[in-house]
Nucleic acid binder design. Structure first.
Length: 294
DNA sequence: AGCTCTTCCTGAAAGC
DNA sequence: TGCTTTCAGGAAGAGC
């Protein structure tokens, strides 16, 4: 499940090989996850790649602007979201093609950029600057860049449960289920706590925990659970450092209590019931979800 | 307005 | 053994 650290790792890999390359041709398989496949196939050939960057969990491949592409509505960005099972790799076109590979871009150095996505939860779009700006306006600050004060202001004022907010890209961008759970464990905060019930100290601790967790994950090139690999096709190693995610029933590394799993905001949430004390049970929640004891 | 739930997709694993 | 059911989750959109 590519989240900020995995996308960052892929982007760094692509930055090493893509800038300056010309896209020679486009071949497509299934296209239901591509915003406008005809436009993509028509407009990409002949364009040169200027750079690669990350925006939240989006990968943005910027195309060099020719004279004709100078106007602001020109589609100068290839925006790619890996969804849950997306992978982008570059390598020789002679390498065997993995099943569910749906985009092939031939490059002028003889290599091929491929997009593979089993579940096709990913998204690909040839986008104009205005679309990238709209994404920026819609979403919150990047989880790695946001300061402690801004984090407390954005998150601490909301009535939603903290886990739901961490997953909401409009509140803060880049975090998914793995790093939300790992960060909450590190900060000793229960995933079902209301954000506006957290103390200033807890918000500071959570801000610190998020950034420390994300940076540690980037150092280990991300977490490979099912499908994630970097742009060279190699898995990350941060899954070895997971403390709660997918560890139901195992002993908490801090206190030894069994890790539990509950649903919060429609997502599996793993936590230590001793280190991360539950919110005071509200009658509404108690009546609906009996497993909220602890 | 602000929050939670449902939906899309495939394959692995559990259930019977 | 072999079938069916459940589950995983990012983010848009529906619903409350």
């Amino acid at each position: 499940m590519p989240e900020l650290p995995e996308v960052e790792t892929v982007v760094r890999g692509l930055q090493a090989v893509l800038p300056g390359r010309e896209i020679l041709s486009v071949r497509l398989g299934k296209t239901d996850f591509i915003d406008n496949p005809v436009l993509l196939a028509e407009r990409l050939p002949g364009r040169h790649i200027a750079g690669v960057s990350r925006y939240g969990k989006y990968i943005s491949i910027e195309l060099a602007r020719g004279a004709a592409a100078a106007n602001p509505d020109a589609p100068n960005f290839l925006a790619i979201h890996l969804g849950m099972t997306g992978r982008i790799t570059t390598g020789s076109p002679a390498e065997p093609v993995r099943p569910h590979t749906h985009v092939f871009l031939a490059l002028d150095d003889g290599n091929e950029l491929r997009y593979t996505d089993i579940r096709r939860f990913g998204k690909i779009r040839l986008a104009a600057q205005s679309w990238m700006d709209a994404l920026r306006a819609r979403w919150g600050e990047d989880a790695l860049e946001i300061g402690a004060a801004e984090f407390a202001r954005q998150i601490g004022s909301r009535g939603a449960r903290i886990k739901a907010l961490l997953l909401d890209q409009k509140a803060i961008r880049g975090i998914g289920n793995i790093y939300a759970d790992e960060s909450l464990w590190r900060a000793r905060i229960h995933p079902a706590r209301r954000a506006d019930h957290l103390s200033a100290t807890q918000l500071r601790a959570l801000h610190r925990a998020i950034q420390a967790t994300l940076l540690a994950a980037i150092r280990l090139r991300g977490s490979s659970f099912s499908d994630y690999v970097d742009s060279e096709g190699k898995p990350g190693a941060f899954q070895r450092m997971h403390r709660v995610y997918q560890k139901e029933g195992m002993a908490c590394r801090r206190c030894g209590h069994a890790i539990r799993r509950i649903q919060v905001a429609g997502r599996s949430s793993f936590f230590c019931p001793r280190c991360q004390p539950a919110p005071r049970v509200r009658k509404k929640i108690h009546a609906r979800k009996k497993h909220f004891r602890n």
